[in-house]
């Protein structure tokens, strides 16, 4: 009971962060459970084009009279999956390469940091636009991988710096003196000290993955596949939904979904910062 209460207190100590957590949970539930409850409306209804929100159509209807709310519910899964996969992969690459760079030193260090430097120099969005034409990015695992390959360098640099400084600390020295082995030192002594940094970066990597992914789909550079907030945005745009009063809901629904999810993620980082860093906590 006490652990439950203290967990609750920990989660609610930062109000903005707690709202962010609720937002993220809401979008995850809506995108992964929602499709089983709300069926996707694919039926063209000529007499119901651009209807305002009503009890039947919560967010109104699109240019073919289909329910927008059902499209929002079904369109989140892919966006969230790409964001999550890209975040995990880029963080994985960054932690591995950053730690390797710091621990190996020498030419391996120089090579990895040189590579990071070059990846940082290449303008990402233009490169992605070009790559989107090169590879059919219908496969979202591949898209996530490409996003990850471009996103790792800054975190890798930070990890390298952290490992370099942490391994000189007394507690690592002590572990080494006790002969606890490299594995123990990395997993038990060094990694826990970087975990907050890593998790927060994971979330920021997710936000930039969403930026790039939706942007690419919006520009029409990624072949349309299925339902996805970016596809909705692009369709609404090409069908001229911005120019009429009635079509406002059609274009603004995906805009709001993406913007709110991004905001929730960014707010969540504040909560995580406080949870991981006891010194920042306002209450005990």
């Amino acid at each position: 009971m006490t652990t439950l209460r203290s967990t609750w207190r920990m989660l609610t100590m930062n109000k903005v962060g707690f709202l962010g957590l609720l937002g993220v949970l809401f979008f995850v539930l809506m995108s992964f459970v929602g499709p089983y409850i709300v069926p996707l409306d694919t039926q063209t209804k000529v007499d119901k084009i651009y209807q305002p929100p009503s009890r039947e159509f919560w967010l109104g209807t699109d240019s073919e009279g289909r329910d927008i709310f059902s499209q929002i519910v079904h369109g989140g899964k892919e966006v969230l999956m790409v964001a999550f996969l890209a975040g995990i992969m880029s963080t994985g690459i960054a932690v591995t390469l950053g730690a390797l760079s710091a621990l190996a030193g020498g030419w391996i260090d120089a090579a990895i940091m040189g590579l990071a430097d070059i990846v940082l120099t290449i303008p990402h969005f233009p490169l992605l636009a070009v790559l989107a034409g090169l590879i059919k990015l219908e496969n979202y695992v591949l898209l996530a991988f490409i996003l990850a390959v471009l996103a790792w360098p800054s975190l890798a640099r930070a990890i390298r710096a952290q490992v370099l400084s942490l391994r000189e600390r007394d507690f690592v020295e002590a572990a080494r003196a006790l002969d606890l082995g490299t594995r123990h030192i990395i997993l038990r002594e060094i990694l826990p000290n970087m975990i907050s940094y890593i998790v927060i970066n994971l979330i920021f990597a997710m936000t930039s993955a969403i930026y790039a992914q939706v942007g690419l789909v919006f520009l029409g550079l990624v072949p349309f596949s299925g339902k996805n907030w970016g596809v909705m945005l692009s369709l609404a745009w090409t069908r001229g939904a911005i120019f009429y009063k009635n079509s406002l809901w059609y274009i603004m629904s995906p805009v709001a979904a993406i913007a709110l999810f991004q905001l929730s993620l960014v707010s969540l980082t504040r909560l995580l910062e406080e949870i991981f860093n006891p010194r920042l906590r306002t209450t005990v």
């Binding site: 936000t207 939706v214 911005i242 913007a259 991004q262």
Partner: peptide
């Protein structure tokens, strides 16, 4: 400041277009 920097710039552009321009 944290809200405007969290939203992707093209969504802000679109909102400007839709609200300030059209509506």
């Amino acid at each position: 400041a944290s809200i405007v920097s969290a939203i992707p710039n093209y969504l802000i552009a679109m909102m400007i277009l839709v609200f300030l321009g059209v509506q």
